[in-house]
Amino acid sequence: MEQTLINLSQYTGTPAVTILVSTHRTFPDNKQDSIHLKNLITQVEKELYEQFDKRIVWPVLDKIKETEKSINHDYNLDTLAIFASPDSIQVKRLPVTTTDRYVIGDRFEIRPLLKAVQQSEHYYIISVSRQKIRLLEAFNDEIVSEVKNKDFPYLNNYYTTDPMRLKHDQIVDNLLKEFFNTADKRFKKYYEENPLPVILLGEERNLAFYQEIMDIRGLVIGTHHGSFDDTSDPDIAKVTFPVIQQYIAGKQDAALQAINAAQSAQRLLVDLNDIYTAAENGQADTLYIGQTYLPTGHIDKGVITLGNGNGSTDVTLPVIDTVLHKGGNVVFLDENALDNYQGIALITRF
């Protein structure tokens, strides 16, 4: 999704059409999604013909209508986003909420995609017990897959049932650590191919042992205690998703700390024109925007003038595009997080 975001942010040309539809994940609610999409496309068609010559409208409109026919709404998430130009079209299902709307201009409305990237997390789940180690891959509240091959699930061949040996805690602990160490080395191969954060599931004592022997430190972003040797994918996701939500919320706290530190170091800009100028000059490190910050106005010769007159547009879009194009980052924060900065703040590189 990150590559899609970069490609869309770099596009400029008219008409660039973005259609955003609030959708539903389950039947029968998702039956109305196709109706809402059709209504928006009708509005888009009307406005396109009002703004452009029909020879410019036809290529983009044909792509939109053809794509509409192929969309299966049974697979909807929270938002359906369509990005269309005369040369290309992309459809994305996003796990973030939006309001039904469309944008016609010379850039795509990429904020929902940015929010989806930042409010989503791809991660590993390792279920740890004395008998079995399971490795799963997940995205937000969905289990993508469980590794089932010669590596995992990994059954404990070190475990002893000898009653005399079981009386000696040190022997049991050493056998357990050896089992965990072998499992971790197997996991390390998957991590090196696709490095993702880790959530550990298991009894508290087992997780303490497992984290003690892990070769790569700092991977674990959360734990949950219990037994999950035979737990189904949906039930595991119910346990891990709240952990991921807490982890994502922690990122916002870290962002606010970074803003405070930048302000102390005199590397923080909060005026919209200063921010845009810094972005144009390649000085933007990270742009923070409140989710409801949507100022309208005009940009003329690099100067932003706010207002709601004829032809006013959302002036944050070119700012966001410029930051991304120059190699900076854009982060959306909760509605009131940036109230002290009027909704927007930029940390500069120097």
Score class of each variant (00 low, 15 high):
92 K>Y: 04
94 L>N: 06
95 P>Q: 07
95 P>V: 02
96 V>R: 03
96 V>P: 02
96 V>M: 11
96 V>D: 03
98 T>S: 14
102 Y>R: 10
103 V>P: 02
103 V>Q: 08
104 I>Q: 01
105 G>L: 04
106 D>R: 07
107 R>C: 04
108 F>P: 00
108 F>G: 00
109 E>P: 07
109 E>R: 09
109 E>V: 06
110 I>W: 12
110 I>G: 06
111 R>F: 12
112 P>C: 08
114 L>V: 11
114 L>E: 05
116 A>H: 10
117 V>W: 09
119 Q>M: 11
119 Q>W: 09
121 E>Y: 09
123 Y>P: 02
124 Y>L: 06
124 Y>S: 06
125 I>Y: 05
126 I>E: 04
128 V>G: 01
128 V>T: 02
128 V>A: 02
130 R>D: 11
130 R>E: 14
132 K>E: 09
134 R>Y: 00
136 L>M: 15
137 E>K: 15
137 E>L: 13
137 E>D: 11
138 A>R: 11
139 F>L: 15
140 N>S: 07
142 E>G: 07
142 E>M: 11
143 I>V: 13
144 V>P: 07
145 S>G: 05
145 S>M: 13
146 E>L: 07
146 E>T: 05
147 V>A: 09
150 K>E: 15
152 F>G: 01
152 F>L: 10
155 L>A: 08
156 N>A: 05
157 N>K: 15
157 N>Y: 15
160 T>A: 01
161 T>A: 08
161 T>H: 14
161 T>W: 11
161 T>M: 10
162 D>G: 04
163 P>E: 08
163 P>K: 09
166 L>G: 06
168 H>C: 03
169 D>G: 14
169 D>H: 11
169 D>Q: 12
169 D>S: 14
171 I>A: 06
173 D>I: 10
174 N>Y: 09
174 N>T: 12
175 L>Q: 14
175 L>V: 04
175 L>R: 15
177 K>G: 05
178 E>T: 15
179 F>V: 02
182 T>C: 03
182 T>F: 07
183 A>Q: 04
185 K>L: 12
185 K>M: 12
186 R>M: 10
187 F>L: 03
188 K>R: 14
189 K>C: 01
193 E>H: 10
193 E>C: 04
193 E>V: 06
195 P>F: 13
195 P>Q: 12
196 L>P: 01
196 L>R: 15
196 L>Y: 09
197 P>W: 08
198 V>N: 00
198 V>I: 10
199 I>E: 01
200 L>N: 01
201 L>H: 03
202 G>C: 11
203 E>C: 10
204 E>W: 09
205 R>T: 15
205 R>G: 08
205 R>I: 14
206 N>F: 12
